[in-house]
Design a protein around this nucleic acid. Structure first.
Lengths: 120, 120
DNA sequence: GCATTATATAGCTATATAGTAATATAGCTA
DNA sequence: TAGCTATATTACTATATAGCTATATAATGC
């Protein structure tokens, strides 16, 4: 595809509820790994793995303070994702959806009558 | 993680560039499976599988017209996703310069990634 | 019934992911 | 130095995903 490869990582990262919860937690301020482990009933290495996925997507970055590696939210990739979604905003209203399917229904009927043809 | 479970499927569906391209195509109007196969250099079963993933996420629905199963965009789940992202909007509008440096960073990484060829 | 077309399903391979326990590393502190 | 704490890495399971080819199903038209 083109240069949207980072969206692969961003959306993939957001597809896991644990990772979304981690981001929600970080929205309240940076946290250490162990602080992130506590609420999840998951092992520390598992959380570290999730953090690596979030880091690959650019959604978190790590500091260094003594033996702590504080994690903080980096929302920039979310802006990218939101921008991608924004292209579909016009399809969201139900009235438009109904109009759309109505129009498409007409197209389909016309296609059947008019035999095989390329669309628009 | 109860009533956000749908987001798992939606974001997972959006994580694949082929599926995002299918949605982009459907934004221009509904299409048959074979019409969706053409631009991708992928087999028809592979596209059918992608459509199943999109359907599970509620992002497309299928009609029935003769032996065709026309696929059409259903953008409602995208609204959900956008709403989720909206909660983080303040984090990227507050610091636009950080987005800028993030994008520059991406460009650098992409250049490096292009040298050692990759994956799939 | 038979052939054609559109799509779905089955069965397979290869790779990725989420989880685990055990261990290693790095930085404090006494 | 030794010992403690925080985090990362390793090695291993189990499951999911993306792709393929081959085949099955469904609807149409002759």
């Amino acid at each position: 595809m083109q240069h949207t490869e980072n969206l692969d990582y961003v959306f993939a990262a957001l597809a896991d509820p644990t990772r979304r919860a981690i981001l929600a937690r970080l929205a309240g301020g940076e946290a250490t790994v162990n602080e992130l482990v506590v609420p999840f009933a998951l092992s520390q290495p598992t959380i570290s793995k999730h953090l690596k996925v979030l880091e690959r997507a650019g959604l978190v970055s790590r500091g260094r303070s003594a033996q702590f590696r504080p994690v903080r939210l980096n929302a920039a990739p979310l802006a990218e994702a939101a921008q991608w979604l924004g292209d579909y905003r016009r399809f969201w209203t139900e009235s438009f959806d109904r109009l759309d399917s109505y129009v498409n229904d007409l197209k389909r009927k016309e296609k059947r009558r008019g035999k095989r043809q390329k669309r628009r």
